[in-house]
């Protein structure tokens, strides 16, 4: 609940750039729809300072809070072998010490000097803290991006033609893969989406909550795998 206020700030920035909060409809083949103005970039940087300060406070609360530690430290442990066997992805896997981040292979992120956040405990606390650390990492990445934003056209054109492609990218919850088949005019003939929650919820059901002893811990363990029910109920 504390974090919803910070989320509003982030969504306001999205709205300033794209005009809407969630469904931004910002990217098109070959570019983006609107340019980032210098004054908008400055406002965004100012808001990032605010977000960073608030996140530091909340991270401190989570790190030092005894009640949170009671429900998270040493609970729902999933070790590295189990995480690999269950095909977990994203922060859930990184909290168990698995090297699993598609951004490491992405040329843009490589240029920005991206390094993976990893923790080795594999319990609920590690999964929360990996996500907190990634927020700070993302703030740094946004700053680097705004600093090194090149001038030039924002739309290069480009058309979708016939073909079949399968591309995986790193979404907030982990690896998200789209397999799309199109006909000669770019109309989608066949599409398959693999969302990260499919693997993570399975891993939670089979590995994480195996040693959990109370119902309250089951809830916190389930939530710590960051399940997206809408991603699975398709």
């Amino acid at each position: 609940m504390y974090l919803l206020n910070t989320r509003e700030t982030v969504l306001d920035n999205l709205e300033r750039l794209t005009g809407s909060r969630i469904n931004t409809a910002y990217m098109i083949p070959g570019g983006v729809r609107f340019d980032l103005l210098p004054e908008d970039a400055a406002a965004m940087l100012a808001d990032l300072v605010k977000v960073e300060g608030e996140m530091r406070r909340h991270t401190g609360m989570f790190e030092t809070g005894p009640l949170i530690a009671l429900r998270s430290k040493g609970i729902g442990v999933m070790d590295r072998e189990e995480a690999i066997r269950a095909h977990t992805v994203g922060p859930t896997a990184r909290a168990s010490g698995v090297v699993c981040d598609l951004r490491l292979r992405h040329p843009t992120y490589r240029e920005l000097g991206f390094t993976q956040v990893t923790r080795t405990e594999g319990d609920n606390f590690a999964r929360i803290m990996v996500r907190f650390q990634e927020v700070f990492q993302s703030i740094d990445l946004i700053r680097k991006c705004i600093d090194s934003l090149p001038d030039g056209p924002i739309r290069g054109g480009g058309l979708c033609k016939a073909g079949e492609v399968s591309y995986g990218g790193e979404a907030p919850r982990g690896e998200l893969t789209y397999s799309i088949k199109t006909d000669e005019y770019g109309r989608v003939v066949d599409i398959a989406i693999r969302t990260p929650s499919i693997m993570n919820i399975e891993a939670c059901a089979h590995s994480m909550i195996r040693d959990v002893t109370s119902i309250a811990d089951v809830t916190s363990t389930f939530i710590s795998s960051d399940p997206c029910i809408a991603c699975n109920e398709r």
Partner: peptide
Amino acid sequence: VARMVEGVHLEE
């Protein structure tokens, strides 16, 4: 009927 759309920069 297939619609083809391309995002372009007018100067280019």
